[in-house]
Structure formats: C-alpha cells, structure tokens
C-alpha cells in the first residue's frame, strides 16, 4: 500500500477516531495519540485485513488510550499495568453535559463504562464490540446488556433518591 493509498483510505476514518479519542482523552492529547495510532497503522498496514481497518483502529486506539492512562497513573500504580486495557470516557466528562448521568456513570465499573460508551457514543454493533474488546460476540452482548441494565437501574434509583 502506497502512502497515497494509505492516506486515502485511513483519512475517511478520522471522524470516528477523533470521536473515540476525544471521549477518552483531554482534547489537547487527541492529536498526539491519533498520530501514534496512524503511525502504528502504517507500520502494520500489510497485516490489517481489508475491510477491518476501522475495527483495527478502534482496537488499537483502546490500547493506546489505556497505556496513556497507565503512564499518567505513575509508577505507584504499578499494578494497574497488569489490568486489562480499558479505555472509557470519564464520568466527569459525561457530567459536563449531564450531571445526573455523570454521577451514575461514575458508579459503573471501568469495563461497564467502556462497553456502554462504545455502544452509545461510538455506535459500535455487537460484532464490532466483540472485535474491539477481544471477546466473542455473545460475551460482548452480555457485557453490554448487563451494563445497560445496571445503568438503567442506577438512573431509576437516582431519580427516586
């Protein structure tokens, strides 16, 4: 794949990548990580299956975001290095637009926040979720259903309170 072909193909995914990263990182870090992501894609361009480019970008972006969070967590959080990569928007960022939703979002686990946001904000289907989260489609669907049920429950409880 020539640089021109790469540019033509991957440029079309910029809005999705921008959205994904902007939901999970400060805006001023998005360009940095996007640069890393597309460099990675370029270096692995021959191994990315045709038609799976966006899925690959999401999956790789998830690792880059998770790694960035780990680095920022500092050396004291060494055990966080061993956790499964999770790249979810922060509850604070949600709360900027919806305080109540943000408070409830904070009560979800990182994995739940991630799957919810991939579904609702990034618009991924179950099969795409499965690819990004590296699990079977059924498992992804179950994780999403449970997360949605919990979020709904928390929201209703919040309303009662």
């Amino acid at each position: 794949m020539s640089p021109e072909e790469f540019n033509s193909l991957y440029r079309s995914y910029l809005p999705q990548v921008n959205g994904y990263l902007a939901r999970r990182l400060p805006f001023d870090e998005v360009e940095d990580v996007a640069g890393d992501l597309f460099e990675l894609a370029w270096s692995k361009r021959d191994r990315i299956p045709e038609g799976m480019e966006l899925a690959w970008l999401y999956k790789s972006a998830r690792y880059l975001v998770a790694n960035r969070h780990r680095k920022q967590a500092g050396r004291n959080a060494i055990f966080s290095m061993l956790a499964e990569p999770v790249a979810a928007p922060s509850a604070e960022s949600i709360a900027l637009a919806d305080i109540e939703l943000g408070e409830v979002f904070a009560k979800l686990s990182a994995k739940e926040r991630e799957v919810i946001s991939l579904w609702s904000l990034d618009g991924l289907t179950n099969s795409e979720l499965a690819n990004v989260l590296e699990m079977s489609e059924n498992a992804a669907a179950i994780r999403l259903t449970r997360a949605k049920q919990k979020l709904k429950l928390l929201l209703s409880t919040e309303n009662i309170d």
Binding site: P3, F6, L14, E31, F38, W42, I94, L121
Partner: peptide, 22 residues
C-alpha cells in the same frame, strides 16, 4: 448518553496525522 457525549465540541483532527504516518 449521546447528548452527554464528551466528544461534542472536540476540534477536528488535523488530517496530516494520517498523511504523515505514511
């Protein structure tokens, strides 16, 4: 959830992030 999207208002990515990678 969509209405609370933290990416709303995010600046567009500079397209050179793709071009430069190649």
């Amino acid at each position: 959830l969509k209405n609370a999207d933290p990416a709303a208002g995010a600046p567009d990515l500079n397209a050179t992030v793709v071009a430069k990678a190649g």
